[in-house]
Design a protein around this nucleic acid. Sequence first.
DNA 1: ACGATTATTGCGTTCTT
DNA 2: AAGAAAACAATAATCGT
Length: 308
Amino acid sequence: MATRDIYETNFDEDVQTNSSPNLCPECDGRVTTNSVETICEDCGLVVDEQQIDHGPEWRTHDQDQRKRTGAPLTAARHDRGLSTEISHGKDANGNELSGQKRQRLSRMRREQIRGRFQSKAERNLAHGLGDVRRIASVLELSDSVRDQACQLFRSAQNEDLLRGRSIEAIAAASVYGACRCNGFSWLLGEVSEMSRVGESRVTNAYKTLNEELGLPAQPVSPSMFVPRLASDLECPDEIRQRARALAEQAEERGVTTGVHPAGFAAACLYKAGQEQGKWVTQSDVAETGNVTPTTVRTHHETLDELAV
DNA sequence: ACGATTATTGCGTTCTT
DNA sequence: AAGAAAACAATAATCGT
């Protein structure tokens, strides 16, 4: 049951939009398509961007599934890596084999290795996608974002990014990456809390994910964080919108780089409240934003300077 | 509760080996 | 190229009003 669940996919109309041109419109150079975007090899121009839609990989995976013949291998491979090797050339007594038998043995060896490899990969995949789905449901992400996270995990596995890392770390990083690419305000620490691995592992995993896959990820901005804090505080719409405007102004002037988005968003909500007569205290917004009143004060000052 | 001052943490850079 | 370390910015803690 879990298996069926894992292999479900959204094969909607948005998958087959990859009618990417073969030549770069700028310099007529060759273009290559990686898992995220299509770029020109000569000038580096991004010809086509995919929104973390790794549809083609589904297809190849499906083809692999169909190509594999014989009984289901799933439950059959519990060898824990202690696997059988089929040797070359000689039989068990060291005698030479006939050509026909050598051919058969060669074929068997090929099949066995292939089956072993696939079962390992699929175990990882099933485990990882399970984690992805679990974390995504805890964070109450939409199905489309969750599926993007699943695609990210598949890409990570295809790119051989799992070796040396734990599956759960990659899974959490995939979820976080999907959040970042869709403008969600979950922080890495919050996502990693949902997994059973340390935050540093998830950080590492996300870092390599970002580098190797070239995610179109944008940093969590304070303005993105305002709605979340506002709903936690049950804030009036008017103040929320004003706070968001404040945050966007500050971002445009470039004073929010490097600051904790929650801290700055909290300061914006505080200032918006002040403008409408007192609404909440510094410590209140600070608490819901998981920052200290000191941080709120600091950013409140910079907001005041901006308004002058 | 807010403001000011000091302490701590985290993180990108730089310097070594 | 990988690791250590000095330096800086952001955040937290503490105290005073």
